[in-house]
Design a protein around this nucleic acid. Structure first.
Lengths: 100, 100
DNA sequence: TATTAACTTGACATTTATTGTCAAATTTAG
DNA sequence: CTAAATTTGACAATAAATGTCAAGTTAATA
């Protein structure tokens, strides 16, 4: 499966943009963008949105991918992760999110 | 749907335990436990495990509930949350978690 | 109703996680 | 080669999570 980082790097290179071009627009150091692309760091929610604009990527797909990685990070090395995901899904579907 | 907090409070009361009894065992102030039970704060992963022991609750169920709330918190007010959940689920099932 | 124990609230401190910079090292393209 | 691009790692800054404390409520009951 394609990761957020790989999607970004691939598109950036396809567009012939350098890390410094894109990182300047994001107002961060190239080092961070480099790490984001290689999956060593997570981007912020805002950076993801900007990246979609800058790189002309489908914003919704990118956000979905990004959020799914955040979710996976949350349950990494939890045996009960999958079950927790299913409960979360059901809870959302019942529209009970707010009534915690 | 029953929340982590409600499950805890209900069982604590059923056992006739006071906030101070349980919070002492968790080594936190009663204020926090009060907030946890009312959903104003999240417990830590360790506290959840201890609470299951102290209150004689099914540990796996409690952890699943707890994790699902953490997941929901991660995607709260995200329109694409459900889709992200589904992608996360698929990713786990393909066993690709580690190969990010 | 006055008292007192249980619980709640909110302001603030502490800790931990996340996000960032910088400079030196490495890699890559000409 | 060498110069630009990228990566690395130590560390700083910021943000989020977790906690304390003391004062305020609530509720049971003497």
């Amino acid at each position: 499966m394609k990761t957020t980082g790989k999607i970004i790097r691939e598109k950036r290179e396809k567009k012939g943009l350098l890390l410094r071009h894109v990182s300047a627009q994001l107002d961060i150091d190239t080092a961070i963008l480099s790490k984001i692309e290689r999956g060593e760091r997570k981007a912020t929610r805002e950076q993801i949105a900007k990246l979609a604009d800058i790189l002309d990527l489908d914003k919704e797909s990118l956000i979905i991918q990004y959020l799914s990685e955040k979710i996976l990070h949350e349950i990494q090395d939890e045996d009960l992760g999958i079950q927790a995901l299913k409960v979360a899904e059901k809870t959302i579907k019942y529209g009970l999110t707010k009534y915690k």
